[in-house]
Design a protein around this nucleic acid. Structure first.
Length: 491
RNA sequence: CGGGAUGUGGCGUAGUCCGGUUAGCGCACACGGCUGGGGGCCGUGGGGUCGCAGGUUCAAAUCCUGUCAUCCCGACCA
């Protein structure tokens, strides 16, 4: 691995890209805009996945799986949704290849194998799922339907970026059907809170909960709730969305049910999702110039043991101590790994685990065994200390909690320091230019103003936060505003 | 799709303007040894259709034409 430290003074996206590759999380694939997620990166994703899955199930949801292909006729049924995704679809038009008569050894698309109806590779699954729900729902007794799907989707974006925006990405998408508007709205809000909770408790990433402006609302939704995070370069990242779909999809796919009074009604719907983009969020929130910094709750292993030895005899006595400690850790729910590769020297191991963000490293060598102590290193503050072996279990257990909390506090502190309230458009522009981050400003609520501000500054309304109802005057138009909203440049 | 740039062992590159020995270097890799508490040292070695196709020439990584791909900046976006 290159010895050069990753420096934030260089271009931030270059820094980010190098970090992702060097930490062994992912790399660009030969297929345009697609990414290969390597085992270490996937292990982190699995941690997120299993935690989220648990949270969904605790709130009454079940997993299911729907097809990758969406027939075009289904896709176009909900007009706004179709329009929103039309420009970024991958489309299957043929089903067979044949030997190319003009080009020996090559294959070509068999012109006779054209599909009667094209298949869209799902950019999201509302269409195919609602076409299915139509057959599942007749009565209020069939409701609610609370389903989540773990899947890949494809969006043919012009410009891509590892984890943050790839042509194919992994996500979960929840699709629920409800008897009443209120119930659907409650579901939407509940999920948004669940996402916020996950981001803050597990990713140690502070988020702002709120609602999207009309411009930024999901295509086909009535209302989009979201969680927004701030990255270290001052740009905002949409980390998760939860949509109240009203009856739009029910009407588009003709999903009616007999209500408690025997009346036919359209069902009320929600959909919500988070994606492998959260990996990018995790990386950009905590990493430093020495690499990744993982919150203990999402680290594939929380503790890495590195032995220092000159001969096999020494290694054997170290191994005994390590195995004993690992058993104790395991019983306490602390995951660990013993890096006893004899193909790498200690210095290189230190560097590797550091760039991979392992929260705690324990080094044990002959000198330590003599003193019955071990060296404990924490990744977040880079501090080392020596601890008696018999005290190490309690120490590490507390330390992991402390790291988890410290990462959150640090990120929150940064975030809070980068929310600036401005009262006029001049300040708006200079703050955005010089400081970045979120700008809290009054807005008259019109698309027109939002678009003009976007054209002039590239900043968009990231969200209309909850719990902020003090009226004022729009920073751009001077017209009355019901509350402050958060502007930022976004990923 | 518009503007810009770049394609040379696994990775990063020199050489291209001004054609001329066997295409050079660093990292990585393999072997041997010294080592081992922060990416260590010495020695030896393997690995290249210079993106692809065509042309000019005694001679092409280098010049010309075409083509493909990738990256950056815009429009688009989880």
């Amino acid at each position: 691995m290159d010895k050069k430290l990753i420096s934030r003074e260089e271009d931030y996206s270059k820094w980010y890209n190098e970090l992702v590759v060097k930490a062994g999380l992912a790399e660009n694939s030969a297929v345009r805009g697609c990414m290969i997620i390597k085992p270490y990166g996937y292990a982190i994703w699995e941690k997120m996945q299993s935690q989220l899955d648990k949270m969904f199930k605790n709130t009454g949801h079940e997993n299911a799986y729907f097809p990758l292909f969406v027939p075009k006729s289904l896709f176009e049924a909900e007009e706004k949704n179709a329009e929103g995704f039309a420009k970024e679809c991958a489309i299957v038009t043929h089903y067979r290849l044949q030997n190319d008569p003009d080009n020996k050894g090559k294959l070509r698309v068999d012109p006779n194998a054209k599909l009667e109806e094209e298949l869209i590779i799902r950019p999201t699954s509302e269409a195919i799922i609602w076409n299915t729900y139509k057959n599942w729902i007749q009565s209020y007794r069939d409701l609610p339907i609370l389903i989540n799907q773990w899947a890949n989707v494809v969006r043919w974006e012009m410009r891509t970026r590892l984890f943050l925006r790839t042509a194919e990405f992994l996500w979960q998408e929840g699709h629920t059907a409800h008897e009443t508007k209120n119930e659907a709205l409650e579901e939407t809000v509940m999920i948004n809170n669940l996402y916020a909770n996950f981001a803050e408790k597990y990713m140690s990433m502070p988020v702002i909960k709120g609602v999207k402006s009309k411009n930024e609302t999901f295509a086909g939704a009535e209302k989009t709730y979201c969680i927004e995070a701030l990255m270290q370069d001052g740009k905002a990242l949409q980390a998760g969305t939860s949509h109240f779909l009203g009856q739009n999809f029910a009407k588009a796919f003709d999903v009616k049910f007999a209500d408690r009074d025997g009346q036919l009604n359209y069902v009320w719907a929600t959909s919500w999702g988070v994606s492998s983009r959260l990996m990018g969020a995790l990386i950009m929130t905590h990493s430093d110039d020495r690499g990744l910094v993982l919150p203990p709750k999402l680290a594939p292993h929380q503790v890495i043991f590195v032995p220092i030895y000159k001969n096999e005899e020494q290694l054997n006595s170290i191994t005994q101590v390590v195995e004993d400690l690992r058993n104790q850790f395991n019983e306490r729910g602390i995951s660990s790994k013993f890096d006893n590769r004899d193909t790498k020297r200690p210095g290189e191991k230190f560097a590797q685990h550091e760039i991979q963000g392992v929260p705690v490293r324990i080094t044990i060598g002959p000198k330590d065994l003599e003193k019955k102590s071990i060296e404990i290193f924490r990744r977040d503050t880079l501090e080392k200390q020596f601890i008696k072996i018999e005290e190490s279990l309690d120490f590490v257990s507390k330390l992991l909690d402390e790291i988890q909390k410290n990462l959150f506090d640090k990120a929150k502190n940064f975030r809070d320091n980068n929310i600036t309230e401005v009262e006029n458009f001049e300040d708006f522009k200079t703050t955005l230019e010089n400081k970045g981050g979120f700008i809290s400003a009054h807005w008259d609520g019109t698309d027109e103003t939002e678009n003009k501000i976007k054209d002039l500054t590239k900043a968009t309304i990231r969200c209309i936060p909850e719990e902020n109802n003090i009226p004022g005057k729009c920073v751009f138009s001077g017209n009355p505003s019901s509350q402050r909203v958060l502007f930022a440049k976004a990923y």
